[in-house]
């Protein structure tokens, strides 16, 4: 009976949502007459005055840079909350870890794959302003590499101090670049470096610096999440 009511409710909701989206239209160019959309402004600004190839990167880091700073802070808070929630006194009798030693094939294979995965992650976030990718994607890929090592080796440890130092340094770099822009350009995260030429590795002013900092920060945070949860004893 309860399920029936819920299904009925969801059907009504789905009907109205669908009606709304049929009105919007799929693949149309939602233009209002006489108004220049934000999209065009961002695209022109990106290619003409910033010389960055990837528009998503320039929006995430430059036009909406403050939001990204907030997002990275939220991730940091999530990691802290995770450590606080899962806190437990260690070394109690009769406990068994989730981890157990993997077979020879898995350990050898992960040792081979680990440098390649970290290299791919670094490539993705260094070239974030030229090709698809960026700090978040590269950081997640590096965290995946650490996950592989943590699963393969029973006693592979990542120092919590190292992680927090890397994370703090990256955060300070991000905020420092923003404040530097405030001093020299007049607003937070203002560009103060030469923008270079389009499709060059050194182009876009401060965008690559900030994205590399974001990459390190995200990698450290997500590795911390995985490490905390994996070493949780059930």
């Amino acid at each position: 009976m309860k399920k029936f009511v819920v299904i009925l409710l969801l059907a009504v909701m789905g009907y109205y949502i669908s009606i709304t989206f049929f009105d919007i239209g799929f693949g149309d160019s939602h233009l209002v007459e006489g108004v220049v959309p934000v999209k065009d402004a961002y695209l022109n600004e990106t290619v003409n005055s910033l010389n960055v190839a990837n528009t998503v990167t320039s929006i995430v880091v430059n036009f909406r840079g403050f939001d990204t700073l907030g997002e990275v802070t939220v991730l940091f808070l999530a990691v802290t909350a995770l450590g606080g929630i899962l806190y437990k006194k260690r070394h109690q009798a009769g406990e068994r870890s989730v981890l157990f030693s993997a077979s020879k094939v898995v350990t050898s294979g992960s040792k081979l794959l680990f440098p390649a995965i970290v290299l791919l992650g670094a490539y993705v976030f260094i070239h974030g302003h030229l090709s698809p990718g960026g700090g978040f994607q590269g950081g997640v890929i590096i965290a995946t590499g650490f996950l592989l090592m943590l699963l393969a080796y029973e006693n592979f440890t990542v120092g919590h101090n190292t992680l927090s130092v890397i994370e703090s340094l990256a955060g300070i770099t991000f905020a420092g670049v923003g404040i530097w822009g405030l001093i020299y350009g007049g607003s937070f995260l203002e560009n103060f470096l030469p923008v270079g030429t389009l499709n060059d590795l050194f182009s876009g002013g401060v965008i690559p610096i900030i994205y590399i900092a974001v990459g390190f920060k995200v990698a450290a945070e997500l590795t911390g999440v995985i490490y905390t949860v994996l070493h949780e004893k059930g």
């Binding site: 799929f26 693949g27 990106t46 290619v47 190839a53 998503v56 698809p132 389009l198």
Partner: peptide, 12 residues
């Protein structure tokens, strides 16, 4: 999404 659109990445 825009029908027949390309990804928002510039390549000269």
């Amino acid at each position: 999404y825009l029908k027949g659109g390309t990804a928002p990445i510039f390549s000269p």
